[in-house]
Design a protein around this nucleic acid. Structure first.
Length: 258
DNA sequence: AAAGGGTTCAACCGCGTGGGC
DNA sequence: TGCCCACGCGGTTGAACCCTT
């Protein structure tokens, strides 16, 4: 027994949307707002399933969509976020106002993957393609192991810093790789965001960080350009945020929350 | 000009999750 | 506590378009 279908497929249209269908959907949502996708098609007089309506609205009809080509700035931000979050397209989209997860996913698969490959970077691991693949550190699954290995390699220095930061109930953003080094022809290293994701019970201010993470970043909301891209702080930077996070210990479970 | 292969992207599909009962 | 339902997500598909020969 399979899962029951989300709608009565025999009486629904499929494939490309017509102008008339678009108009009906837009008019209905303008009048009644988003939500109740299952009942929306019938109410709006559309022969579509709710899922299809939702997707059409979110990916194409929403008035706040940016559309048009991605900028270099957006490219680099997507790459950095992907190295941090993996294929969490909705989370990545949440950091790019006006862009949808579907759009970013498609753009990644068609443009950025190739761009990274041409730079000699594995788009999955964000490591140089010829580097030994056992050193993957970008996934959440590997984060704890990577943190341990980093501690070993740095003879405890990072660990002490972590302990210090834990005590101060703030996270870490110790970073000393010039952003310009990345992808500029030198031996390529993965963009070392150095977020050192840790699995730990939330400290008091983590909840605040989690709340911040649930909302899309608006760059004008106190983030300088460098911080919004995850680059090292500039001399005149006064931000206490990184990628929309307060510099708190980042609990990856918070990242998953919406 | 036409054929064929490659690319892009809108849309679909199935599963996981969380809330309500 | 367990079930059901609706929603949201990520992977996949396929039609339309583009490019090369």
């Amino acid at each position: 027994m399979g899962r029951s279908p989300c709608c009565e497929k025999a009486h629904t249209n499929k494939g490309a949307w017509t102008k008339e269908e678009d108009d009906r959907l837009v008019a209905y949502i303008k009048a009644h707002g988003e939500g109740c996708w299952r009942s929306l098609p019938k109410a709006a007089g559309l022969l579509r399933c709710g899922k299809s309506c939702r997707l059409r609205w979110i990916n194409y009809l929403r008035p706040d969509l940016k559309r048009g080509n991605f900028t270099e700035e957006e490219d680099e931000l997507i790459i950095k976020l992907h190295s941090l979050l993996g294929n969490k397209w909705s989370l990545i989209a949440g950091r790019l106002p006006g862009r949808t997860d579907n759009e970013i996913k498609n753009y990644w698969n068609t443009h950025i993957r190739r761009k990274l490959l041409s730079r000699g970077i594995d788009p999955v691991t964000h490591r140089p393609i010829n580097e030994h693949t056992s050193n993957i550190t970008i996934s959440f699954e590997a984060a704890a192991a990577a943190a341990n290995r980093d501690r070993e390699e740095n003879k405890g220095a990072i660990f002490r810093l972590e302990e210090h930061n834990k005590a101060a109930a703030i996270g870490r953003h110790h970073q000393n790789h010039p952003a310009g080094d990345w992808g500029q022809g030198k031996p390529l290293k993965c963009p070392d965001l150095n977020l050192d994701l840790c699995i730990s019970p939330p400290a008091p201010c983590q909840e605040e960080a989690a709340m911040v993470m649930m909302k899309p970043v608006k760059r004008e909301a106190g983030l300088c350009f460098s911080c919004s891209l995850g680059l090292p702080k500039s001399a005149d930077c006064k931000c206490s945020n990184f990628l929309g996070l307060r510099t708190a210990m980042l609990d990856f479970r918070s990242l998953e929350m919406k």
